[in-house]
């Protein structure tokens, strides 16, 4: 197998495909949901009140900001770090920015490689914690499906392979191809799986905010 060729294809055509599927997929899904919501989700619109909606969203974004999070603080922290790093780190890596510079002639501010390393390790630890929790807590293990494990592994794979590739551990070419492959697969799967909570989170959370807050004058955190 020609690893260099695979790398080239994944980097050039692969990213295009992955990103377009990701963006279009999310867009189509949102438009579709918006379309059916007009008739079937009157409660969402009837009780709309964005102060409650935003409160509901923000509260749950703060680690330990809600009773639910405080109930399981370690998990709360792991979830927070996992999501924050997952969303931010890819944009701040100097290696990614170099690629961006080469392709489109601009780049985002980068962080130092040692910080990036640290964040990656933190990410991997929190991912491991999430995985451990899934297995260790009987109720979560009972609820989990193979797909939950797969997605968790798939979403940490780009970070693990990225770390390995940066430090040139193991067969570099294989790992970098794996890095690209897993990241692109993740982007493609995202709109069509539970990972769509990236966007849908905002709507479900604001709905319960409206539902409990605007409709009933009660909290939802």
């Amino acid at each position: 197998m020609n690893w260099d060729y695979a790398y080239d294809v994944l980097l050039s055509r692969g990213t295009w495909i992955a990103f377009s599927v990701f963006i279009l997929g999310l867009l189509v899904r949102c438009v579709f949901l918006f379309g059916i919501s007009l008739e079937r989700d009157r409660p969402f619109y009837n009780h709309m009140d964005w102060t409650w909606g935003i409160k509901s969203i923000i509260r749950w974004l703060i680690p330990l900001g809600t009773k639910g999070w405080r109930q399981q603080p370690l998990f709360s922290l792991a979830v927070f770090l996992f999501h924050a790093i997952f969303l931010v780190l890819p944009f701040l890596l100097s290696a990614h920015n170099v690629l961006l510079q080469n392709a489109w002639g601009f780049s985002l501010p980068s962080i130092s490689d040692s910080t990036a390393d640290l964040l990656t390790i933190v990410f991997i630890i929190s991912a491991a914690l999430l995985m451990w929790r899934r297995i260790a807590r009987p109720e979560v293990r009972f609820l989990s499906t193979w797909w939950d494990y797969t997605l968790l592994i798939l979403s940490s794979l780009p970070f693990i392979t990225g770390l390995l590739a940066y430090h040139q551990i193991g067969p570099y070419k294989v790992i970098i191809v794996l890095h690209l492959l897993s990241a692109e697969l993740l982007l493609i799967l995202l709109p069509f799986s539970k990972l769509a909570h990236m966007i849908l989170y905002l709507f479900t959370r604001s709905f319960i905010g409206f539902e409990m807050g605007a409709r009933r004058g009660a909290r939802c955190w």
């Binding site: 919501s37 409660p43 969402f44 109930q71 109720e139 989990s144 499906t145």
Partner: peptide, 24 residues
């Protein structure tokens, strides 16, 4: 079908089975 709106679809698809609801 009547209930199959955006909310139900979102809820059923994004539940990540984190199990926080169990202790509630």
């Amino acid at each position: 079908d009547k209930n199959n709106g955006a909310r139900i679809r979102s809820w059923l698809s994004i539940c990540s089975r984190c199990g926080l609801c169990a202790e509630a």
